[in-house]
């Protein structure tokens, strides 16, 4: 067996610089967050990139943190659910999920909210999806939200409420953007 080696890496997690000495290169980004940094808001649902519960934002893009090794992220900026808001200071999507009951057991919820955060940015940037009518300027239809959120499974099936929550936030943001 190879002897354990040290792999010091630096991550900026929710704005805080964290240096991690990983004695094991097999540690996934998900397990590094949950077990090494104590950020258990990011959930492990399948550990295989199939459910989306572990979604975090790395350098502005949403990824499944279970499918990525921590050592691959030296120097990266990572946002987890803990970095979006806190009880009493909820981010707009967190408040909308609460109000629209966009969750039940709550286990997939951090992943859903992280995914929705990045998804709205992708849409603003004009990225099309398989359900887009106009590939150059996709509109925020309900099906567009459903398709773009289909990588985040929810067995409680809060889906209709998740769509409503995301739509509420997107609609609230739209006029402000127009005004700007």
């Amino acid at each position: 067996m190879p002897a354990p080696t040290d792999h010091p890496i630096t991550l900026t997690v929710n704005g805080t610089v964290e240096t991690l000495v990983l004695a094991d290169p097999r540690v996934s980004l998900l397990d590094a967050l949950r077990q090494r940094l104590g950020l258990t808001g990011t959930k492990k649902g399948c550990d295989h990139g199939q459910c989306g519960a572990c979604t975090v934002i790395v350098n502005g893009r949403r990824i499944n943190s279970c499918l990525s090794l921590a050592v691959m992220h030296d120097g990266d900026a990572i946002t987890t659910i803990e970095g979006l808001g806190a009880p009493g200071a909820l981010a707009p999507l967190q408040a909308a999920f609460l109000h629209h009951d966009g969750f039940q057991c709550g286990y997939c919820t951090p992943g859903q909210i992280m995914s929705a955060t990045a998804m709205l940015e992708e849409l603003r940037a004009g990225w099309p999806s398989v359900v887009s009518d106009d590939l150059t300027a996709p509109a925020l239809s309900d099906d567009e939200i459903r398709e773009r959120m289909s990588g985040n499974l929810c067995r409680c099936a809060a889906y209709p409420n998740i769509v409503a929550a995301i739509r509420a936030v997107a609609d609230a943001a739209a006029p402000a953007e127009d005004a700007a």
């Binding site: 808001g41 806190a86 009493g88 999920f97 969750f103 709550g106 951090p110 909210i113």
Partner: peptide
């Protein structure tokens, strides 16, 4: 009414079984 534990769930502060080791 909204779920009283909802703010903990939407912020990742609700701790499930394999957490708070």
């Amino acid at each position: 009414l909204d779920r009283p534990e909802g703010p903990l769930k939407v912020t990742g502060r609700a701790t499930y079984a394999d957490e708070d080791h």
